[in-house]
Amino acid sequence: MGLPGNPHRSAQPPHVARWLSPFVVTCTVYLVWVPEDPPSWPGALAKGLPMLCLVVFLQAVAPGGRSTRLFQGALLCSFVGDICLVWPEGFLYGMAAFAGAHLLYLAALGFSPLRPGLLLPVLLPASCFLGLLRPHLPAPLAAPVAAYALLLALVLWRALAAGGGAGRGALLFTLSDAVLAWDTFAQRLPLGRLLVMSAYYAGQALLARSAASGPRRRPD
């Protein structure tokens, strides 16, 4: 082992990096060259295009089966959500699309191993953040945002229970949504768009990469 004639197997096969390249390119194009204002359909499509690249990535490299299809469905819902959120009047539609994505992620991640001990450390910070955000929310959005936050917390719990890239990806996704909510409703943040979208794209990529790795190993 380790001799020139017996190279170690790469943790990330070359074809995985090759199929992720379009995702990296489209993320860069959106973050560097596409302006946030004024909202436009070309800008909205550029924002969502990385999600379509991840759908193609999973089609090319992931093992087939129900889990892969669920991850692809979640990415397609995210694509719809990305487009809706470009326009302020589309906020509720975007949140509904992302709620659909999280439901699909929940179905893909499953509930085994259960690891209930992770639930409280997830729900406690989520509840505290929601409490801080609540005074800044318009009254009609208070209940939908609370329901969405609970759903996102459940996805984070299940992803942390699965471990690996899924857990890291869900953490970044959660961070992205938290920054977006604070930037939108409480206080505009310097480089808010860059922080939100960088964490979001990285989180989605890690989630997709975890699906491409095949069945996750379960602890005994």
Results as ranks from 00 to 15, higher is better:
220 D>P: 15
177 D>A: 10
18 R>A: 15
98 F>W: 06
215 P>Q: 12
166 A>T: 08
153 A>E: 04
214 G>M: 07
188 R>D: 14
47 K>D: 01
154 L>I: 08
41 W>I: 11
204 Q>E: 06
25 V>K: 02
11 A>K: 02
126 A>C: 13
59 Q>P: 01
211 A>M: 15
210 S>I: 06
216 R>H: 11
20 L>Q: 13
154 L>G: 08
150 L>M: 12
108 A>G: 02
152 L>V: 12
134 R>H: 15
119 L>P: 04
78 S>V: 07
7 P>T: 05
77 C>Y: 00
31 L>V: 08
181 A>T: 12
84 C>R: 03
162 A>E: 02
17 A>K: 11
3 L>A: 07
69 R>I: 00
30 Y>H: 12
144 P>F: 04
156 L>S: 10
107 A>Y: 00
101 A>D: 06
64 G>H: 05
120 L>Y: 05
187 Q>N: 05
196 V>C: 04
108 A>C: 10
16 V>N: 00
204 Q>M: 13
13 P>N: 09
20 L>V: 09
102 H>I: 02
201 Y>H: 05
40 S>H: 09
58 L>V: 07
216 R>E: 08
206 L>M: 11
151 L>D: 05
23 F>D: 08
7 P>N: 11
211 A>P: 09
68 T>K: 10
66 R>L: 13
198 S>Q: 02
37 D>E: 14
205 A>N: 12
31 L>C: 09
46 A>L: 01
100 G>H: 11
94 G>E: 06
96 A>S: 07
31 L>F: 01
59 Q>R: 14
36 E>N: 02
3 L>T: 12
43 G>Q: 02
196 V>G: 07
25 V>W: 02
100 G>I: 02
122 V>D: 03
132 L>H: 08
80 V>W: 02
159 A>G: 02
103 L>N: 01
161 A>S: 07
189 L>F: 14
139 A>Q: 12
101 A>R: 06
195 L>N: 05
124 L>M: 04
168 R>F: 13
119 L>W: 12
41 W>L: 14
112 S>N: 08
136 H>F: 13
213 S>Y: 00
166 A>K: 00
139 A>D: 14
47 K>T: 05
166 A>W: 06
123 L>C: 09
174 T>W: 15
8 H>G: 10
35 P>R: 08
140 P>A: 06
163 G>K: 13
87 W>K: 04
166 A>N: 07
69 R>F: 00
10 S>Y: 01
218 R>V: 13
50 P>K: 04
26 T>Y: 00
93 Y>H: 14
2 G>D: 06
67 S>K: 09
6 N>P: 00
158 R>L: 00
220 D>T: 12
138 P>E: 05
211 A>Y: 11
61 V>F: 03
80 V>G: 01
27 C>M: 12
101 A>S: 12
135 P>K: 03
123 L>M: 12
83 I>Q: 04
105 Y>K: 00
90 G>R: 10
172 L>I: 00
82 D>S: 02
124 L>N: 04
24 V>S: 06
68 T>L: 03
198 S>Y: 04
7 P>Q: 06
35 P>W: 03
192 G>N: 10
212 A>I: 05
21 S>L: 15
23 F>Y: 15
